[in-house]
Design a protein around this nucleic acid. Structure first.
Lengths: 343, 343
DNA sequence: CTGAAAGCGCTTACAG
DNA sequence: CTGAAAGCGCTTACAG
């Protein structure tokens, strides 16, 4: 490896020129004789020379590296899109993304390790992404490097943050349900300890009010966090309300995986989704939504777009610090779960 | 940034010692006076000094970087585990994983770009992972750097490869179905252009033979690749065989998402999974398997383990080149889909 | 136990 | 248009 290392020196030797001229050619400096340039190019190709990033980083005093710390992100299909979007932006903008998947367990020390590594590589800025919009405490990272929050934010808005507009998403999907005929919808919300849960509650209620319906007592929780473990029990909740006295004509689930549980509750109650009862949701986890029968109508999280934008924001933020939350809108994806015979 | 850079020199200045001694302390060289060491440690902490990786890489002529090129991997839950396993191993073994998600489109040039970047960072070895066990042509990478294949292999076995033992997995799950009473199983196989499809076909047939059943004509394809797009149609296939004259008492699907389609075909036929008919599958995509009702019994792909092992293999392979395929076994995860009233 | 010198591969001023 | 010198931050021999 070391012996075979191809350097500018060797290229210069072969091209019969100086080290410096090779450097010029590589950096597209116009002040090089066309013929010399061609000779150098040929030598580069012949030797398979690749500039040594580490040397460049050191000499230029800049790394071109953006850190991406993903807390529990790689656990759902949808949120992997945050990473894909960031990756794409990094390609496009000539940055190197250095990715770390860390777990939620603070005792594992993985997060600390990731930060240390990023500092050692002199990352110019770090993007911190979580699976849900928590109100995070990020000063341990923020004091070390410029920081951008993705799909989360901090209490004091000390860092630029890119978040989903959950209020609007809930408002929209609820309005759509009502527009199509729902008069007695139920909302199986995610945990209201999450910001998303709080925002969506408001969106659901406000959409009802806008249509003259009071749905404020039609919100139930279908997720539990027991000893830190996130547990879906939309099946049980849905089963109970379907068997209850005041059967809804539409169920809005907090996430597609919960909607999937709702489907089975509906089936077990001898009913049909999209026929006897409408179902809708949030996320747009493609495989789930497409594979359910009927297909699940849902509010698509704009994660790819957010991931992409996070890199753009990070580059700007590394240059001149910014703050403030930027909201991203969900997109309604209509499949076939949104009708009900009750309408 | 540049002005504020904390170097060994500044640490030495503060500790009242030489540059070299600081280096010794950082690299845990025992030949340092305990008191000097303490003084240096204190200075390091005070200044928040972090060694500069780029400088180390250059001086040591080794990068400690392992490339991980993931072709279409981040598209299913299960295969993200390949990445998670590799990440974990990298943490444990003190290597830096440099991850690239590339798409399958050869014209995008992302793969080439990834290789170029990895060469520029002088990655010591590259792990190339795909979503399925294709027979890949990897010489474009293999000629540039030591290469390890993960979840795929090449025709000539020129590189070490870590693959799933699909034959054995199919043999095991089929045997389990038969052991519990299946006499007329059907296998909705994945595409037999995939090695997995071929191996599983054999496993299914051999398990039948071992139990005295000829199931060789009970294999159907439930996936199409139309214009390069992978399309599941297990629903239609299952619906047809359930309505046909020779109704199976068990259906083995090629992947959990297909099993999900089978569930809906069973439901629409007015039957119940785990009661009227047994269903099983491959993958263990946790959310899907757990959320289906009844829970789906499936052969879990050992992706985390394989991802972890790929890094260990890569480290060895970078040192002394190896070749050969290593097989990993799937684990049977029993939930509640494996009974049938027909038994 | 400690330090001064040299060099890893590159690019930024500075001279020609 | 081209080149020789200096230095980015570190560690490996070599002397003390």
């Amino acid at each position: 490896m070391a012996g075979a290392m191809v350097t500018q020196k060797r290229v210069a030797l072969l091209a019969g020129t100086s080290l410096k001229t090779v450097s010029r050619v590589i950096n597209d400096d116009p002040l090089v004789n066309a013929e010399t340039r061609a000779r150098v190019r040929k030598a580069i190709a012949e030797l398979g020379y690749k500039p040594h990033q580490a040397a460049r980083m050191m000499r230029n005093q800049e790394s071109n590296i953006i850190g991406f710390v993903a807390n529990q992100v790689a656990t759902t299909w949808a949120s992997v899109e945050l990473i894909n979007g960031a990756q794409e932006a990094a390609w496009d903008l000539g940055k190197q993304l250095m990715l770390f998947n860390v777990d939620d367990d603070p005792t594992s020390g993985r997060e600390r390790q990731a930060i240390d590594q990023l500092q050692s590589f002199r990352a110019e800025v770090v993007i911190y992404a979580t699976r849900a919009s928590w109100d995070v405490q990020m000063d341990s990272i923020g004091s070390a490097m410029p920081l951008v929050l993705l799909n989360c934010f901090d209490r004091n808005d000390a860092y630029p943050a890119l978040v989903v507009d959950d209020y609007r998403a809930a408002f929209q999907i609820t309005s759509e349900m009502i527009r199509r005929g729902a008069r007695n919808p139920v909302f199986l919300n995610v945990h209201e300890g999450q910001v998303a849960g709080q925002q969506r509650r408001r969106g659901f209620i406000d959409a009802g009010l806008a249509a003259g319906l009071d749905v404020s007592d039609r919100i139930m929780r279908s997720v539990d966090i027991i000893d830190g473990v996130y547990t879906l029990n939309a099946y049980n909740v849905a089963r109970d309300i379907l068997a209850g006295p005041d059967r809804p004509d539409a169920i809005l689930a907090g996430q597609d995986t919960q909607a999937m549980q709702v489907y089975f509750a509906v089936i077990d109650a001898g009913l049909q989704v999209g026929k006897d009862i409408a179902v809708a949701s949030f996320d747009n986890e493609k495989p789930v939504c497409d594979l359910l029968r009927p297909g699940l109508s849902t509010m698509a999280l704009p994660y790819f777009e957010m991931g992409y934008a996070s890199v753009e924001t990070a580059i700007r933020h590394a240059e001149t610090p910014e703050t403030g939350r930027r909201m991203f809108e969900c997109l309604f994806v209509d499949r076939n779960s949104l009708s009900s015979s009750a309408w």
